[in-house]
């Protein structure tokens, strides 16, 4: 625990960034959904799992490979999200948001249970696409190319979403509708439609993360629920409702987790929750949340 070689340290930082990349993409979507719908989307992990499964099914049953899946899967998962919002969540809008939470929690259990029933609980391997086999050297570091790709793709997607929300007209509409949906409606904007599409897009983003995850982790029905608990801690630490905050927090916590593995491996599974407790004690609104 004393003198850790720099390369090992850097290696863990990079590995931590991979987990952090998933935390960032998922907590980003959660934060946006919470802002627009006032719903804590417990089904987010299930949509991530759905993304990985659809990706795997496309390969095994349709012969559709990784690259097309990267585009098709988010669209499929997003479409499922649109239906879920239209048929269920939109009817829960305006009542206590406990109902939204209960509904999405139930949906997550149902999806997970349904996939276990049909496909069994065991994991299914998904091959790394040919173009992303091999390794990259970053100075003294050697990293599988695929993991490098996951970090890069996630960060690019996060930045793109952030730019979309902070710098475009569509983003301004989303921010305004988050603040005062009735006034934005009175200005002539179909806010319910905007809400539906936002939910679909954020859930599609979770599906995208599922595709990225498929070659790294086993594609299994429980992969979402394992991850989502941590992602919720990330959201609490970053502060609900802050887009930039959830990206930074996600990446940072992945790194903290990675470093803990070097210095105190047994603590790596709980370090994020320790950070959460600390943050809740010192800044209950989260690191990037607005104090009210």
């Amino acid at each position: 625990m004393l003198s850790v070689p720099l390369v090992v340290l850097l290696g863990q930082v990079v590995l931590g960034l991979i987990n952090g990349a998933f935390y960032a993409v998922l907590s980003l979507g959660l934060a946006i959904i919470f802002g627009m719908l006032n719903v804590i989307n417990f089904a987010h992990g299930a949509f991530y799992m759905l993304g990985a499964f659809v990706c795997w099914l496309l390969l095994t049953h349709v012969g559709l490979g990784y690259w097309p899946a990267l585009v098709v899967v988010p669209l499929v998962v997003g479409a499922v999200g649109v239906v879920v919002e239209r048929v269920f969540l939109s009817r829960l809008a305006g009542i206590d948001h406990l109902y939204g939470l209960l509904f999405t929690f139930g949906l997550a259990l149902a999806l997970e249970g349904g996939f276990i029933f049909v496909f069994g609980a065991a994991g299914n391997p998904y091959p790394v696409p040919d173009a992303l086999r091999g390794i990259v050297r970053l100075g003294p570091l050697i990293l599988p190319l695929y993991r490098f790709w996951v970090i890069t793709a996630s960060i690019i997607v996060c930045l793109a979403v952030w730019l979309l929300i902070e710098k475009t007209r569509l983003g301004a509409l989303l921010r305004a509708a988050t603040e005062n949906p009735r006034l934005v409606t009175a200005f002539g904007v179909n806010v319910p439609l905007l809400v539906t599409l936002t939910y679909g897009a954020c859930v599609g983003l979770a599906g995208f993360a599922g595709v990225l995850a498929a070659p790294i982790y086993q594609v299994s029905p429980t992969m979402g629920s394992n991850l989502i608990i941590i992602v919720f801690a990330v959201v609490v630490i970053g502060g609900l409702g802050s887009i930039g905050g959830s990206i930074v927090t996600g990446l940072a916590l992945g790194v903290i987790e990675g470093l803990t593995k070097v210095f105190y491996p047994a603590g790596s599974t709980i370090v994020i929750f320790l950070v959460m407790v600390l943050v809740l004690m010192l800044r209950p609104a989260g690191l990037f949340g607005r104090e009210t």
Binding site: T185, A186, F187, G188, V189, N190, V191
Partner: peptide
């Protein structure tokens, strides 16, 4: 509600 603005009403 989202079509009221199109009648020319500004609030």
């Amino acid at each position: 509600p989202h079509r009221v603005a199109r009648t020319g009403l500004g609030y």
